[in-house]
Design a protein around this nucleic acid. Structure first.
Length: 640
RNA sequence: GCCGGUGUAGCUCAAUGGUAGAGCACCCGCCUUGUAAGCGGACGGUUGGAGGUUCGAUUCCUCUCACCGGCUCCA
């Protein structure tokens, strides 16, 4: 049998010899690093038998290798848990993007202190270096086996499978139903770490039993594991909740209830900058700003359909025997404004923009700092247009969104087109049409995207843009949604050129989306070191001694008059201390003023990187700052 | 909402079935300071809240609130 290995070496493989044996015999060096193999394009175990054709050796770093590796790590962990907690029932244990997890049904509940113990047992299992064996069983046989073992979840999975034959992986006494492939032996698993413990419902269904999930990660390369653990630390260092406290930006209060944000003075400055940006950019693009109330009668939400599809997320109350709703969305308000007078095709597209604050009930367990709150403000707009204008308008929204995200320093995006969810309104025909238009707008702009089936909103399909931050994490960002439904429900019309009534279509779109969430992402993206134009305080003025206070205030006045956010640190403290405080507050520039500066009308500029430049004329400092703010520069150093 | 964890001074964190402690911050003094912590002093707590067990609870138990890690959902 002729086998072409890695596209270069052709050799005659003896029958009955596994890929691993072949490697050991012919390429012993490779055998040690091999994770799996690909036979004619199919990912298989190293214990598979080669076939005539191409054989590729998959090593760590190759596509698919991490998945195989971590899947085996999950099995080793499951084996360890079974050994330590006999009677544990296994659910599922897949590899995920940065690691793996396994869900267990264990009689006793695990605590984080148990993880090291499990990790140790895993290490022991890897030392045993038990071969991982793939077997093919009759499904019925597997059902009997797992039933006998008391592994009900496995039985349930088996019973739902269509195949007659299933694959089983075995290492030592540990047997698991699994598609594979896996590492050839437990000893091949080298660097791993158990990370956290969590509850997870069997099959993600809250009506099913709650299982205990252990998350972990594994790498073949020790330095990669280290790097990943450093990444986790870095993420913690950037945590907006922590930075929000340290930088005095915002707070939450038990007395006020969870999920509602209090912006402190510095936090409000940053929020104001974001809002100013949005207002001016919307105005530039022909949007008209509107303001709508926070409370609407319940009836309106029946008309809009929210009462049917969004009720669980809405806050209600009753007064004078009348039902009221705290608005969870801004659209109905904008529709009411549209309807205040007859509209003509000449009015379209009509673009209403609102910094609309909405309240949505979120289950207590999902709240998360600014990223998931109950009260938030959206940069929300609704575009009423003709069907013909739809595609162009969607395109403009997308361009607007990308422009804005780039202005705030985000460069990498992922785009998703979400289609009709199960619970939704409108005809299939409308959905199909809207979905098509969205897809075409993306294609026209040459934006690559993937389809997210069933993830649309109840009234229409949508485009979601996810942004990647400085350390590569992605976050939910702008969305553009087509809506053929609400105009119908509210009976919106416009007079066409033919002088007949027509139905407009509507686009819901946000640019930065929820301001709170965007704000949180912004903090994490910059780790609190905001670019000059966003920094709540741009310059800390540090007098060397009391006699420099007058000049310090003069500098402050000059800067403030020109719109630079400057503050004098008047504390009778050492220069070192005042510098330290400014650094910890991540203020872009510290201006030290002493005798020399007073005499020469200069400032000594220290940037956030710790570099100082002395004798900078005040006027020069001011003009350079204004210039950078104007161009929204992300340069951090004074010399940059 | 559910599973697990956590809750002690403004912040970060100790301690313990027997009087609750440190560092930093705040306040007051001294120092008048040149690029990341000058020195001293004073103040500061119903140990998240309510109930229970106990001679005695911050510690053990129950309930509750909030937060953290997830499940699910979403801007």
């Amino acid at each position: 049998m002729k086998v072409l290995i890695d596209g270069s070496v052709e050799l005659e493989a003896p029958t009955g010899m596994t890929v691993l044996q072949l490697l050991l015999e012919r390429f012993p060096v490779k055998a040690g690093s091999a994770v799996a193999a690909r036979i004619n394009g199919r990912l298989v175990d190293l214990t598979a038998l080669p076939e005539e054709g191409e054989l590729e050796i998959v090593v760590w770093g190759d596509e698919g290798a991490d998945e195989v590796y971590r899947h085996t790590a999950a099995h080793v962990m499951a084996q360890a848990v079974l050994e330590l907690y006999p009677g544990t029932k296994l659910a599922i244990g897949p590899a995920i993007s940065d690691g793996f997890y396994y869900d267990f049904d264990i009689a006793e509940s695990l605590s984080p202190d148990d993880l090291p113990r499990i990790e140790e047992r895993m290490a022991e299992i890897t030392r045993r270096d038990e071969p991982v064996v793939r077997e093919t069983w009759e499904r019925e046989e597997a059902i009997l086996f797992f039933r006998d073992e008391g592994q009900g979840y496995k039985v349930e999975m088996l019973e739902e499978m269509d195949e007659d034959r299933v694959t089983i992986y075995r290492q030592g006494d540990f047997v698991d139903l699994c598609r594979g492939p896996h590492l050839a032996s437990t000893g091949r698993l080298r660097h791993f770490r158990l990370l956290s413990l969590a509850g997870a419902y069997w099959r993600g269904d809250e009506h099913r039993p709650m299982l205990q999930r252990i998350y972990g990660t594994a790498f073949d390369d020790a330095s990669e594991l280290d790097r990943y653990l450093e990444f986790l630390e870095e993420a913690e260092r950037r945590d907006h909740r922590r930075l929000g406290k340290e930088l005095d930006l915002f707070s939450f209060h038990e007395e006020a209830g969870p999920g509602v944000v209090f912006y402190h003075p510095k936090g409000a400055v940053l929020r104001g900058i974001i809002e100013d940006f949005l207002k001016s950019e919307h105005t530039k693009r022909g949007y008209e700003m509107v303001i709508t109330p926070h409370l609407f009668r319940g009836q309106l939400w029946h008309t809009s359909g929210h009462m049917d599809y969004y009720k669980d997320n809405m806050y209600f109350f009753e007064k004078d025997g009348m039902e009221y709703v705290v608005k969870p969305m801004n659209c109905p308000g904008h529709l009411l404004i549209y309807k205040t007078r007859p509209r003509s095709y000449r009015d379209l597209p009509l673009k209403y923009f609102e910094l609309g604050t909405v309240y949505r009930y979120e289950r207590s367990g999902v709240l998360h700092g600014l990223l998931r709150v109950r009260g938030f403000t959206q940069d929300d707009a609704h575009i009423f247009c003709t069907e013909e204008q739809l595609e162009e308008q969607v395109g403009e929204c997308l361009e607007f969104a990308f422009y804005s995200l780039r202005a705030f320093g985000f460069e990498d995006f992922e785009v998703y087109l979400s289609t009709r969810p199960e619970d939704s309104v409108g005809s299939d025909e409308l959905w199909e049409k809207a979905t098509m238009v969205l897809g075409r707008s993306l294609e026209d702009l040459g934006i690559p995207y993937s389809v997210d089936p069933g993830e649309g909103v109840f009234y229409g399909p949508k485009i979601d843009i996810k942004l990647k931050d400085a350390i590569g994490r992605s976050w939910q960002g702008p969305t553009v949604q087509a809506d053929f439904n609400l105009p119908q429900r509210f009976d919106l019309t416009y007079a066409g050129a033919d002088n007949k009534p027509h139905r407009p279509v509507m686009i819901h779109r946000v640019v930065l989306a929820g301001i709170e969430r965007f704000y949180g992402v912004l903090i994490e993206h910059y780790a609190g070191e905001f670019p000059l134009w966003l920094a709540p305080v741009q310059a800390a003025i540090i007098p060397v001694a009391d006699r420099h206070l007058d000049y310090a205030h003069e500098v402050e006045g000059t800067l403030r008059t020109s719109g630079v956010r400057a503050e004098v640190d008047e504390d009778r403290q050492t220069v070192n201390m005042k510098i330290r405080r400014a650094q910890l507050q991540k203020i872009p520039f510290s201006l030290v003023v002493g005798d020399r500066e007073v005499e020469n009308r200069t400032v000594s500029v220290r940037d956030r990187n710790g570099k100082d430049t002395r004798g900078v004329p005040l006027a020069e400092f001011l003009s350079r700052v204004l210039e950078r703010v104007e161009e929204r520069s992300i340069a951090g150093g004074w010399e940059d």
